[in-house]
Design a protein around this nucleic acid. Structure first.
Length: 887
RNA sequence: GGGCGCUUAGCUCAGAGGUAGAGCGCCUCUCUGACGCAGAGGAGGUCGGAGGUUCAAGUCCUCCAGCGCCCACCA
């Protein structure tokens, strides 16, 4: 195939999907149980069935794919478990919104029909995200894809509940929880979104039952006054000593209630008197319980005022608030009203203001479960990256509270407990028991379902067949890395660790990588519907950047220091250009390999017979070896951005900008040995770099790899580069770096002198050091070509001064002959340079003459400073010499 | 009320004790046979502020400010 048939510009659209289909067909993604091989396991943070792939998923899954592809290339049996979460509340919200369009609620359908509807919906839309993930190029094991309501998974969830129940971790009872009056379910503390919101603080007088002045309380919820059962003050609050133990009259309902003393009241807040409403406030609920007060409930599950509230009955709680305030105002009981900022909790899903509400709920006792999960992190058997998340995890775990696991929803895992309709006794069982412990036969199953996170907490082992002792469980558990965002450390990560230890007796993974959240350039959450960003697929398909570009752009910016990653389309332009660079490097290499792509090259770490490696070849091999080491170390440390940057700099800044240019010189030199060595080195280094790049950009690397000589059928299963230590040659690297400095110096002088790019110059290179001069000699052809300096000459220290523009680079004096007309400009430049040198010299000498520096700084540092001073002095002397020669 | 993160070139970010970096953007030049989605050469920063430690501080410590996030039952 002739090179001309390969387009000059890389177009990802032509190749990405083709390669994905190829990998799938070859079965590379599937990791079978194979005890002879070392497994490497990642459990995908399961997306919700309701979700579209957003940019956060794109980053999350790219990072996992990078790890999986890298380890796979290292020879590990890499298994990445994909799946989706049934997401009870999320799915309810979506489906009920659909039903609402037809004027229906889930209650119109009833449980069975609703579930049928939901399954149907899941069948239609639940798989979209898989398609999108595939378009990203991810290499998860699709043969193992799991849904958290698959029959096998359901069994695991029920089993987990039954075990916890049997061991006394589960308890049931009326508790005050966060209730969503819209979704009609409880939500856990972690699912509450708090925000400061404007409210009004009403100061309300409660008159004394004895006709006295009573007390003034402060509240922002006057509608709950109807359910007040006491007024509390701090026991040490002298203002109210007299009142404690007496009675005051609750306004609106004219109910006498006691004034009690309790330390939990803050005397500094408001008036220092707190109305106690155990039915509608968590703190009041506690205080009420401790003081043996009754609990009155005046707001129902839909947030409406209860029938016993008289004129307020049926009102919405916010309407009632206004009405109650107005009534109090008319009664003259409002002493003061002030605007007030307060923290309001809303339902994470539907944004409704949550209501503290008392219902029958199921809880899991957490303290005991948390202990081992704290220990494994303390002992670094599970490590967080970046490390700072360790503290966040431990703080939460050490103050863990019982987990409300029940939800009054239908889509999910129904709690396997059976209530006796006759005596109320409960039985936990997988199947409906025939009789209750007291022998009654009429049992009904608990209606509530489990919190979604209860089931996803089992993900690392329920997906492997637990509770059965399957070969998968034995082989793939414990897994290795969990990659996720910080928002689900408590909701999910912590619970997986606790459940893994509890049910399988080992940690689910050894490393947790917490990556940044993706925001747009304005620092806002990226959301297509809010108009603050696009979906990954838009960037990939409609804008045509391709999956590789999106992956690389995200990886390049996912540093461990930042908590957020600001993403904009501009970043994709950068990577598109990089892709194009890779593409054209490959075109160049391939063109120069034509006719000599024998398989003898493939996989070799030594050049073919007859090839004579030159300075440039050794140099690039050395740089490549370093890059390979660095990339490997970066991936081991979860420093993905550094790996991406190292590859970008190496391939573009080193290989393309310099080595390719050196190679051109050697390829046309007519020296067969040099040509052959150059061909091999061009290929060897590019092929190796492609492999290093493959985990981040799988498609383009596969495509380009196939354009070059290669061993095997896919780069995906090629070995991870591990260059021989002998490739690293520090002295050789330094020699080429010096050459590069000379080239840059000549280019810079040319530009200063305004020499047209097309014309050739004849700089004199003066090198006093004999050995250095000899080492530079064979590299003159590179200088001729790279600096357009055909007339370049090399001379010893004794060369004449002459009228020249000059610079010192890499230990070489570069002298460019100039015309008389250019003298003023040259003089100006030399004087500028001299001034810079002198001021730097002054600084260095200042340091060297300070006694403290000499005596306290390490000898090595002092020595390098001395050398620097000598070097600067030498340069200054040389510049003065050039200047005087210009006169 | 506690805690965490960030603040470095116009923009997005690296750098974590010894001479301030990259990409994009900007300026100048280049139709050199891989690439103009390119090449070459430049300009541009007293590293948020104030103290301190040190021979030496973007880099370590303290305080402050701004931005962002998390936790907590302040009515």
């Amino acid at each position: 195939m002739a090179t001309e048939t390969i387009p000059k510009t890389y177009d990802p659209r032509l190749i990405e999907e083709r390669w994905y289909a190829f990998w799938l067909k070859r079965g590379y993604f599937h990791a079978p149980v194979d005890p002879r091989r070392d497994p490497y396991v990642i459990m995908m943070p399961l997306p919700n069935i309701t979700g579209d792939l957003h940019i956060g998923h794109a980053l999350n899954n790219t990072l996992q794919d990078v790890l999986i592809r890298w380890r796979r290339m290292q020879g590990r049996n890499a298994m990445w478990m994909p799946g989706t979460d049934h997401a009870s509340i999320g799915t309810h919200v979506v489906i009920e919104r659909e039903l609402a369009k037809e004027g229906q609620t889930r209650f119109d359908l009833g449980r069975d029909r609703f579930l049928a509807y939901a399954w149907d919906w899941k069948g239609k839309y639940g798989g979209i995200i898989y398609k999108q993930l595939k378009r990203m190029g991810v290499s998860c094991d699709w043969d193992r894809v799991t849904f958290t309501m698959d029959p096998r998974y359901q069994d695991a969830v029920i089993e987990a509940f039954l075990r916890l129940y049997a061991e006394g971790y589960v308890y049931y009872g009326k508790r005050m929880i966060n209730w969503c009056p819209h979704d009609l379910t409880s939500v856990s503390d972690l699912e509450v979104e708090y925000a400061e919101e404007a409210s009004t603080l009403y100061h309300v007088r409660y008159r004394g039952a004895d006709g006295g002045e009573g007390v003034v309380i402060a509240t922002q919820r006057p509608e709950t006054i109807l359910a007040d059962v006491a007024v509390a003050v701090h026991p040490d609050d002298e203002r109210y000593h007299e009142l404690v133990g007496r009675q005051v009259i609750v306004p609106l309902v004219n109910r006498p209630v006691p004034v009690i003393a309790d330390r939990r009241v803050d005397p500094a807040f408001g008036t220092g008197a707190l109305k106690i409403t155990p039915g509608h406030d968590p703190l009041d609920n506690e205080i009420g319980a401790d003081h043996g007060l009754p609990t009155l409930v005046m707001i129902d599950e839909r947030g409406r005022m209860a029938p016993e509230t008289g004129q307020y009955a049926g009102m919405d709680r916010f309407e009632a608030r206004t009405a109650a305030a107005e009534a109090l105002r008319i009664l003259g009981l409002i002493v003061r009203e002030e605007p007030y900022l307060t923290s309001i909790g809303r339902c994470e899903r539907c944004k409704t203001v949550l209501e503290p509400y008392i219902t029958d709920q199921w809880f899991v006792r957490m303290k005991e479960l948390a202990e081992p999960a704290i220990r494994v992190v303390r002992e670094a058997r599970v490590r967080f990256h970046p490390e700072r998340w360790t503290g966040v995890y431990l703080d939460w775990m050490e103050n863990i509270r019982d987990w409300n696991i029940s939800r009054r929803l239908w889509w999910g895992h129904q709690i396997p407990v059976w209530h006796c309709e006759t005596c109320g006794e409960m039985v936990a069982a997988r199947e409906r028991p025939a009789r209750c412990p007291n022998g009654h036969g009429s049992l009904r199953q608990e209606e509530q379902i489990l919190d979604t996170w209860f089931s996803s907490g089992l993900w690392p082992f329920a997906t492997l067949g637990w509770p059965k002792a399957t070969p998968e469980l034995g082989y793939f558990y414990p897994g290795h890395v969990l990659v996720t965002g910080r928002d689900i450390i408590f909701l999910w990560v912590a619970r997986m660790i606790m459940f893994g230890l509890k049910f399988v007796g080992d940690v689910p993974f050894t490393d947790v990588h917490i990556h940044p959240n993706v925001l747009n350039l304005e620092g806002k959450r990226m959301s297509k519907s809010l108009g603050t960003g696009l979906d990954p697929i838009d960037y990939i398909e409609s804008l045509g950047y391709g999956a590789d570009a999106l992956r690389y752009a995200l990886v390049l910016r996912s540093s461990q220091t930042q908590q957020d990653l600001r993403f904009g389309e501009k970043m994709l332009d950068d990577v598109r250009n990089f892709n194009n660079k890779i593409w054209n490097i490959a075109r160049f290499v391939r063109m120069n390999l034509e006719g000599d792509t024998g398989s003898a090259w493939v996989s070799s770490t030594t050049p073919p017979a007859g090839a004579a490696l030159g300075e440039a070849d050794s140099w690039i091999l050395s740089r490549f070896a370093r890059t390979a080491r660095e990339v490997t170390a970066d991936l081991e440390a979860f420093e993905f951005d550094k790996a991406a940057r190292a590859l970008y700099d190496f391939l573009w800044g080193t290989y393309a900008d310099w080595y390719v240019e050196f190679a051109k010189v050697r390829l046309v030199s007519g020296d067969a040995g040099a040509g052959r060595a150059t061909q091999w080195t061009l290929w060897r280094v590019l092929e190796g770099t492609l492999r290093l790049l493959h985990p981040i950009m799988p498609h383009i690397t596969e495509e380009v790899w196939h354009l070059l000589p290669h061993d095997g059928e896919s780069i995906m299963i090629a070995p991870w580069p591990d260059p021989p230590p002998g490739w690293i040659d520090e002295e050789g690297e330094r020699a080429v770096e010096r050459l590069m400095e000379v080239v840059r110096a000549i280019r810079s002088l040319r530009a200063d002198l305004g020499v047209p790019a097309g014309s050739v110059v004849a700089p004199r290179l003066r090198v006093s050091d004999e050995a250095r001069r000899r080492s530079l000699e064979p590299m003159l052809p590179y200088i001729r070509a790279l600096a357009r300096a055909d007339g370049v000459t090399l001379e010893g220290a004794s060369g004449p001064e002459g009228r020249a523009a000059a610079a010192i680079a890499g230990g070489v004096e570069v002298l460019m002959p100039v015309e008389d007309s250019e003298l003023p400009a040259v003089r100006r430049r030399l004087n500028q340079e001299l001034a810079r040198l002198r001021s730097e010299l002054e600084r260095v000498e200042g340091r060297l003459t300070s006694g403290d520096f000499i005596t306290r700084a390490p000898a090595q540092v002092v020595e390098t400073e001395r050398q620097r001073a000598a070097d600067l002095r030498g340069r200054a002397v040389a510049l003065e010499r050039y200047l005087s020669a210009l006169r």
